[in-house]
């Protein structure tokens, strides 16, 4: 019996059903929604519940979410981590049902926003840079234009700033302009501006299961 499983990319509000022709994980060519009441999971068919974690597969996961964002730029998407494949629609709906309050409140919190990434790098040579001054200048400008921010790891000494910002759609243009101003004001530095992303750095949800056989814990 070969039943198709469901690879999930993210959770959206069920205002409309969605079907996109897009290259997804494991050769899928179409993404669509599976709904439980007012929540919809964006899925594609897959033959395994344990998809191989390759660069291409991870990029495909992102490509589908980018297509969802492009389809309706104001849509809130709660992104799934890589590899969240469900056995069938029944198990998926069971999880949507069990986690509905957390998913609902998360969708409400992130409505009307996108995540933008900002990395600022010092020059590779020995040019002296007042990193504290750069930090306070840049973060003050960007904090004023965002509704949330997270500090990510500065994994090399050259990395002066590595942050993700949650930015409302209405302030996107102003945020873009602020990046230009920062770039112009610090022309010895490299500014890497990425996104828009689903709010990966602002959503942290873990759904677990306790089996009856294991007894009460």
């Amino acid at each position: 019996m070969s039943e198709s499983h469901l690879y999930t990319y993210g959770i959206i509000d069920d205002n409309e059903s969605l079907a996109l022709n897009v290259d997804g994980v494991a050769g899928a060519t179409r993404a669509y929604t599976v709904s439980y009441r007012s929540l919809s999971a964006v899925v594609s068919d897959i033959e395994t519940t344990d998809p191989e974690r390759t660069d291409a597969a991870v990029e495909a996961h992102n490509t589908v979410l980018q297509a969802v964002l492009e389809h309706d730029a104001t849509r809130a998407v709660v992104p799934m981590s890589f590899g969240m494949a469900f056995k069938n629609a029944r198990t998926l709906k069971g999880v949507l049902r069990g986690a509905r309050r957390a998913l609902r409140s998360t969708l409400t919190e992130i409505a009307g926003t996108v995540e933008l990434g900002v990395k600022v790098l010092a020059p590779g040579d020995d040019t002296a840079v007042d990193t504290a001054a750069v930090r306070s200048d840049v973060t003050a400008r960007l904090s004023a234009l965002s509704v949330g921010e997270t500090e990510n790891d500065c994994f090399t000494d050259r990395l002066i700033i590595n942050k993700s910002y949650l930015v409302e759609h209405d302030t996107r243009d102003a945020f873009d302009a602020a990046i230009d101003e920062i770039d112009a004001a610090h022309d010895d530095l490299t500014v890497r501006y990425t996104g828009p992303w689903p709010p990966y750095n602002f959503v942290d949800i873990h759904i677990g299961a306790e089996q009856a056989q294991q007894g009460g814990r």
Partner: peptide, 27 residues
């Protein structure tokens, strides 16, 4: 990052008694 669902919750409802949900929203 992103939502993580344990494998038992994804592949089977049989034998699962409790679904646990932990959520942290930074906004």
């Amino acid at each position: 990052k992103g939502v993580v669902v344990d494998v038992w919750a994804r592949i089977s409802l049989v034998g699962i008694e409790i679904l646990t949900v932990e959520a942290r929203v930074v906004a």
